[in-house]
Design a protein around this nucleic acid. Structure first.
Lengths: 190, 190
DNA sequence: CGCCGATGTTAGTGTTCGCTAACGGCTGGT
DNA sequence: ACCAGCCGTTAGCGAACACTAACATCGGCG
C-alpha cells in the first residue's frame, strides 16, 4: 500500500498556497502561481482540488477545525478558568507563531469561499470564539456577552498581528510578550 | 470660482473604493465595480486617477499622513508620556471606529502599490510607529526597542480589529473598551 | 506482459480585466 | 455667442485568468 504518503501532495500544495494567499491575497494569486510554487505547472492542481475556491475552502476548514479542536482539548483539561485562559492564549500564540500565513489567510479570506463551505467555517470560528467568551466570562462575571465577544475579538487581533512584525524579536520572547499582553488586555477592564 | 467642490468627486471615489477594497481586497474589485459604486460606469475614473494602483496609493498616502500628523499633534501638546499615550490611543481608536474600511485597507494592501509610493507610505507608517515607541519607551525604560516595536504593532492589531466585530457594541462603549485594553496591554509587561 | 490509477503535460476556450480611443455634453468666463 | 476645460459616455484592444480537453509517463499488481 502506498497509502503512506496519501494526501502528501495535497498538504504540500496547501502549505504553499497559504504563503501565497497571505502575501498577495486570494485574487492576487493565479493557478499558475500555485502550480509553480510546488514545482508543477498550472492545471496539475485540478488533480487534487476541484478548483481554486475549493482549495481555499479546504485550507480554511482545516485551520478552523484545528483551532476549535485545540481549544476544546485545552479547556477540557484545565482545572479552573484562569488556567483555561492561560492555555487558550498559549495555544493560539503557538499557532500564530508557527503558522503565520495560515492565521493571516484565516481571518482575511473567508468571503472568498462558496456559501456552503463559508457557513461551516464560520460555525467553527464562532465555536472557537465562544470557548474564549465562556472562559473569560467566568473571570469577568459583570461583563455583558457582547462586550466579552468584542474583547475576545480584539485579543485575536492582537495575537494575530504577529505575522506583520516577524523577525525582529525571537520566537520565545515574542510568545511571552503576547501572552502577557493578551492576558492583561482581557482581564484589565475589571 | 467653482473651486468650492474641487476634488469632491475624488474624495467620493476614494471613500467608495475604501469600502470595496476592504470588503473584497484590491484584486477583488474591478474598475467597473469602482465606477458603479459612485454612479458612473468604469473608465470615468481615469479622469481622476491615472490608474487603479495610483488610486490605492493616493488612499494609503492620505491615511498614513493623517495618522502620522494626528499623532504628532497629540504628542506635542501632551504634558507627560502617560498623557501622550492616552492621546495616541484615543486618536487611533477614533480613527479605527470612524473609518474602519480605511484602517483595514491601510494594513493589508501596501504590497499592491508601486515601489515609489510604497516607500513613501512605509516611511510615514514607520514614523507613526516610532512616535508610539518613543512614548511607550519612556513609560517602560527597561524594554528593548525591538520589544517595544513588537508590542506597539500588536496593539495596532488589537485596535484595528474593530472592523471585524462591528455593530454588536455601541461606539462609545467600544472606544472605552479598546482604550482600556490597549493601555493594559502596552503597560502590562512592566 | 499488460493494464490501470495516479499524476503530470501542453493547447485551447470563453470570460474578465485594466486601460485607451474617440467622441459628446454641460458650465462658467469673456 | 463662443470657446475651454471638466467630466462623462461606448467601443474595443491585448493580456491574464480559471478551467477543460486530450494526451503522456510511470509504478505496482494481476
Amino acid at each position: 500500500m502506498a497509502n503512506r504518503a496519501i494526501g502528501a501532495r495535497r498538504q504540500e500544495i496547501l502549505r504553499a498556497a497559504a504563503e501565497l494567499f497571505a502575501a498577495h491575497g486570494f485574487h492576487g494569486v493565479s493557478i499558475e502561481d500555485l502550480g509553480r510554487a510546488v514545482g508543477t505547472s498550472g492545471p496539475a492542481l485540478y488533480r487534487h482540488f476541484p478548483g481554486k475556491e475549493a482549495l481555499l475552502a479546504a485550507m480554511l476548514l482545516d485551520v478552523s477545525e484545528r483551532l476549535a479542536e485545540g481549544g476544546r482539548a485545552r479547556v477540557a483539561t484545565a482545572p479552573d478558568p484562569a488556567t483555561a485562559l492561560e492555555e487558550l492564549l498559549r495555544g493560539h500564540i503557538a499557532f500564530a507563531l508557527n503558522e503565520p500565513a495560515l492565521i493571516t489567510v484565516h481571518d482575511r479570506e473567508l468571503p472568498n469561499v462558496a456559501a456552503t463551505d463559508r457557513h461551516r467555517i464560520r460555525r467553527l470560528q464562532r465555536g472557537y470564539l465562544e470557548q474564549w467568551v465562556e472562559v473569560v466570562g467566568r473571570l469577568r462575571p459583570h461583563s455583558r456577552p457582547a462586550t466579552l465577544r468584542a474583547a475576545v475579538h480584539a485579543t485575536f487581533g492582537l495575537l494575530n498581528s504577529t505575522p506583520h512584525s516577524a523577525g525582529e524579536v525571537a520566537k520565545d520572547e515574542m510568545a511571552d510578550l503576547l501572552l502577557t499582553m493578551g492576558r492583561a488586555a482581557l482581564l484589565a477592564p475589571r
